[in-house]
Amino acid sequence: MMVVGIPRGLLFYEYYPLWRAFFQALGIAVETSGPTSRAVLDAGVSRAVDEACLPVKAYLGHCLELAERCDALFVPRVVSVERGAYTCPKLLGLPEIVGSLRTGRPLVTPVVDYTRGGSRAVDAAIACARRLGCGSVRAAWAYVRARLEYRTFTESLQVAGGWFEGAVAGRAETGTADRARPRVLVLGHVYMVNDRGINLGIREHLLRLGVRPVAPQWVARRNWTSGARALPKKLFWTYEKQLFGAAKHVVDRGECDGVIQITSFGCGPDSLVSEFVRREAERSRVPYMALTVDEHAGEAGAVTRLEAFVDMLARRLGDRET
């Protein structure tokens, strides 16, 4: 049986449940790479161009690791997920960036492009299935089934306040309702917030420090869309719009006590949008910290900064109560 490999990186953390369900419905086996390890990072870093961002370098590492265990690599070209906006230039050119690795495995690269509207994901799904030798009708059916499964996933993120791993495994999250603990919005792209291998374990450290981490992905679409209207001009990057809109929504409603924006060094969209997020936080008098990571970032340094930030939050909360 044919095995399709899905690298554990970038939009994996957004769409993996959809992709997995789709291939399963088609009767195609799916293999994923393991969690981001030092070895995966090193492999990616050594093959990527210097200035690529850490998530792209990690993604290349995952492709190299996975190439040995699959017949084809699934590397979609997600150009746009909504009308009039893009994802990120590096995602637009992802198949070619991976292609430059010459892994010896063919790439399956459906193109998802909503820039001009329409329902392009289903077209991409059918094209992808045909490339793997399945019929169009079967592909359309598999896609519809996968959408249903994907909805359960996004709901378990938004309604229950879950995180990627739990929602994928279908686990109910055991959220802490301890009101005395500070809540921190961990703002960042899905692959920054959810990949422990590149975010230096920020969420685990926050939990250990007695903080309740809040994810931007918990904010419903209509809420972040309306939050993003506060920007001076419509943003042409969907995921950045989501980040800013979610931060605005959460900060405005007083649903967090601090914001930590976790960014990869050299992230183009973040470099501009974080400027607006910081201003929004300052306006609402919510402490803001930017944490930039790259392949040289040390966990100890990050932990010190997190501890200082959390100490400051705890003091502020204490002052407010007295």
């Binding site: 200035e51 230039p89 050119g93 070619e96 050299g266």
Partner: peptide, 16 residues
């Protein structure tokens, strides 16, 4: 310019 997104993609394939 340092960190230019489109040119980084281009650079990745220029080696080939």
């Amino acid at each position: 310019p340092f960190t230019c997104m489109p040119e980084i993609v281009a650079e990745s394939v220029l080696r080939t």
